[in-house]
């Protein structure tokens, strides 16, 4: 009986959580499209998410591109298919690795920071103070972060794509002695606009997910330092899982047969 009760409690908690998240998402989105807007806050969040995440995303991308070129070479050389390396690097990066790795890195950096900041504001009554000052916390705190996440992740991913391809180029040309002109020509000729567009659509979705889960976890945090810590963990774990799930769904929509 206790076992059944435990399962029941878990199921109820899950649906309760899902309901709260749905209401939170609908409220947040409705505030993103209705004035007043807070341009200063949106700009600040865009700088936080875009500019300050550039080093970590850039480093991830360049090493991913380098490893991809190296690993592809060791595999393809057995079949004398080295000329496909440029193709593999550019397609893998633009379609998958660029958006997913950037998404996961930004989830760790920005999702955690949003959850911690908003969670601390919740437990120190700063969010209640906003309400008493006739300021809607969704408009002031959540909407700018969602808008900034939605807009800046594609920019980050575009930069990551370029840096990643450059990483692959460096390994191919300077380590594996490929002809620079032919490598670049292969890269450009194999690349289709849809490869880049699908990556950017994924990036927008990931940016929205990261900001949403960061804000949601922080907004609903309880207690003191422990509650804020739990909110931070929840934000990173839930946004990472959602990124991987949504990545499959979008891939299926764009490239599924």
């Amino acid at each position: 009986m206790n076992f059944l009760a435990t399962i029941g409690a878990v199921v109820l908690a899950f649906f309760g959580h899902l309901g709260r998240l749905t209401i939170f998402t609908a409220t947040a989105v409705s505030h993103c499209v209705r004035p007043p807007f807070y341009p200063r806050h949106i700009l600040r969040q865009m700088i936080d998410i875009g500019y300050y995440s550039l080093p970590v995303v850039g480093l991830t991308a360049i090493f991913s591109g380098m490893v991809l070129a190296l690993q592809s070479y060791t595999g393809f050389a057995r079949f004398s298919a080295e000329s496909a390396i440029a193709n593999v690097v550019v397609i893998s990066l633009t379609r998958e690795l660029g958006p997913v790795l950037a998404g996961l890195m930004v989830a760790g950096r920005i999702g955690a920071s949003m959850a911690a900041e908003i969670g601390t504001m919740r437990v120190t009554e700063q969010i209640d103070a906003l309400t008493t000052l006739s300021t809607n916390p969704f408009k002031y705190l959540v909407a700018p972060r969602l808008i900034a996440g939605l807009l800046m992740l594609p920019v980050l991913v575009l930069v990551a794509d370029i840096i990643g391809v450059f990483g692959g180029y460096m390994v191919a040309v300077y380590k594996l002695d490929f002809n620079a002109g032919i490598y670049l020509s292969n890269t450009i000729s194999f690349l289709e606009p849809l490869d880049v567009i699908s990556g950017l659509v994924k990036a927008s979705a990931f940016g929205f997910i990261i900001a949403l889960m960061g804000c949601y976890s922080g907004y609903h945090s309880k207690g003191g330092a422990q509650g804020v810590g739990a909110a931070t963990t929840n934000a990173v774990v839930s946004s990472s899982i959602l990124i991987l799930t949504v990545n499959y769904v979008i891939t299926e929509l764009f490239f599924g047969t």
Binding site: E125, Q126, A129, T132, L133, S134, T135
Partner: peptide, 27 residues
């Protein structure tokens, strides 16, 4: 309404003057 919170609930990302003027600027 105005409210004085037990722990102050001051916005730590803003300087003191902006905390005091928050309702005037935003509201």
């Amino acid at each position: 309404f105005g409210m004085l919170f037990q722990g102050g609930a001051l916005f730590d990302s803003l300087p003191v003057w902006e905390n005091v003027a928050f309702g005037l600027i935003q509201g």
